[in-house]
Structures are given as C-alpha cells and as structure tokens.
C-alpha cells in the first residue's frame, strides 16, 4: 500500500507550536466546512482549490511534502475574506501568513 501517504503527528505538533508563538494557531478549530474556499477571491481565479481548507488539512495530518509543495501558501494575499466568513471564528488568513513564514524559515531558506 505504498500509495498511502503517512501522516506525521510530529510535523503537526511542530507547526502548531510555531503558529502558537505567532498567535495564529486557531486553525485547529477548523471543522472542514469549506466556507474559506468559496470566500477566497484568488482560489477560483487561479484555480487553486480548495484553498485554504486543504492547507489546514495538510497541517492537521502533518503532510510535510504536500505543504512544502503548495504554491497557494505563497500566493495568498492575506486579504482576510476567509477569516471574515469562517463560522468557527478562526483566522485562516493569519494561518496562511504564519505558515508562509514557517515554510520560508524551515525549507526555502535551507534549500
């Protein structure tokens, strides 16, 4: 069953701890409704869906590969529309912002 990607709880914990320091860890409230995706003005235009719901799933499951290769994180404009509509009162825009920092610090700078 090689086509299954292994979840990595330690990556999740690491990102969550990082986010916590930046005050952006409320993504854990996400119950996967997809409102942020429809609210996002760039998701549809650039055809990068589902955004940012998918990214949050990747963090939760600790799918490092997928996270590092998600161009969405770098494309996000932090307009805050998703946060405006989130029924959980979470702040996906903040999450994207913090995640951008995380990815740059941990992967892009190291490359």
């Amino acid at each position: 069953m090689s086509k299954h990607i292994e979840v990595r709880p330690e990556i999740y914990t690491k990102i969550r701890d990082f986010m916590k320091k930046l005050g952006a860890d409320d993504f854990i409230k996400c119950f996967n409704c997809g409102t942020c995706t429809v609210a996002c003005p760039i998701a549809e235009v650039l055809g990068i869906v589902p955004f940012s719901r998918k990214i949050i799933r990747y963090i939760m499951l600790g799918l490092e590969e997928d996270l590092v290769n998600s161009k969405e994180i770098l494309l996000c404009l932090h307009c805050g529309e998703c946060s405006e509509y989130c029924p959980k009162g979470a702040n996906p825009a903040e999450t994207m912002h913090a995640l951008k920092t995380y990815i740059i610090q941990n992967y892009l700078l190291k490359r």
């Binding site: 409704c33 997809g34 589902p50 719901r53």
Partner: peptide
C-alpha cells in the same frame, strides 16, 4: 449559490 463541494474539492 456558490459553495465548495468539499468531497470533490471544487468551487
């Protein structure tokens, strides 16, 4: 009505 079809990941 605009929505994300979560099971398909499409808008």
């Amino acid at each position: 009505v605009k929505y994300e079809d979560v099971m398909r990941g499409t808008i």
